[in-house]
Amino acid sequence: MSIHFKTAFSSIRRSPFQAFAAVGVLAVTFFVASILTTLLYSSDKLLRYFETRPQVIAFLKEDIPLSDVSSLQGRLEGDIRVKDVKYVSKEEALLIYKEATTDNPLLSELVTPSIFPASLEFSLTDLKYANDIIGEVKSESTVDQVGFTANLGGEATLSDTVERLKTITEYVRIGGSIFVGILFATSFLVLFVIISMRLTSRRGEIEILSLIGATSSFIRSPILIEAMSYVVLGVSLGWMLSFISVLYLSPSLISYFNQIVILPKTITGLLALFGVIYAAEILIASLLALVGGSIAVSRSLKKR
C-alpha cells in the first residue's frame, strides 16, 4: 500500500469521531440529494406524460361522409405535431361509456350508439402545439367540438393542467436545489474544518516533511486521500439508504400511478437510474473534497 494511503488511514484511525462526523454529514446530504433527484426524475416523467399523453378528442358532426373523416384523419397523421390518431365510432364510444359506468348499469341501459358522436382521438408530441392544433381542428367543417382528457382536478384547459404540473415541478426543483445547496455547503464546511483540524494536529509532521524535502503535493496527498475516503463512504452510505428506501416504496408508487411510469419498473432499470445518480454524486463530492482539501492545505502551508 502506498505510504500516502497508510498515512491517511492511520490518521482516520487516530480520530474516529471526526471521521464519523464527516461521513455522517456527507451521508445525510447525499441521501437527501438522491431522494430529491429521484423526485425530480419522477415529476419530470409525470410532466412529460401529461405533456404528451393528453388525448385531444375531435367530436365529429352527425352524418358526415366517412371519406371526409378519413381525409381529416390522414391529414392529422401526416402532421408532425400529432401522434397516435385513432378513429372512434359511435359503437366504440358506447362501449367506452359502458365500461366507464359498469358500477351503475342503469345509466347505460337506455342509451344507444346514436346519441354518441363519432370522434378522432390523438395525442400531441409537445404541449406547446396544443392551442394551435385545437384551433385548427375546431375550424374543420367536419368537427363539432374539441375536448381533452387530462385533468388534475378543477383545471379548465389542457394548458392549465400542464401549467400546474410545471409549477409543482419547478417548486420541487428550486426548493430541492436550495436545500441540497445548503447541505452541500454544510458538507464542504465540515470537510474543510475536519481537514484543517487534521492539519493542525499534524503540524509537526508537516514541518518535518517539509524540512526533508517533501513537495506540496507529497504533503497534500494523504490529506486528500483522507477527504476522498470520507466522501466515498458518505456518498455510498447515503446513496444506499436512498436506494433501499426507493426500492421499498416503488411497488406502491408504481401501482398508485398505474400507467404513468414515474420510476423504472424493473430492478435493472432502477439500478441504472441510481447508478447514474451515484456516479454524479461521487463526482460532485470528489470536487467538494478536492477543493476543500486543497484550500485547507494551501492555507496551512502558507501559515508556516
Binding site: 517539509s210 524540512l211 526533508i212 524535502g213 517533501a214 513537495t215 506540496s216
Partner: peptide, 9 residues
C-alpha cells in the same frame, strides 16, 4: 523541496 532532497539534515 528539490534542493532539500539533495541534502541530509
Amino acid at each position: 523541496p528539490f534542493f532539500r532532497q539533495r541534502i541530509g539534515v
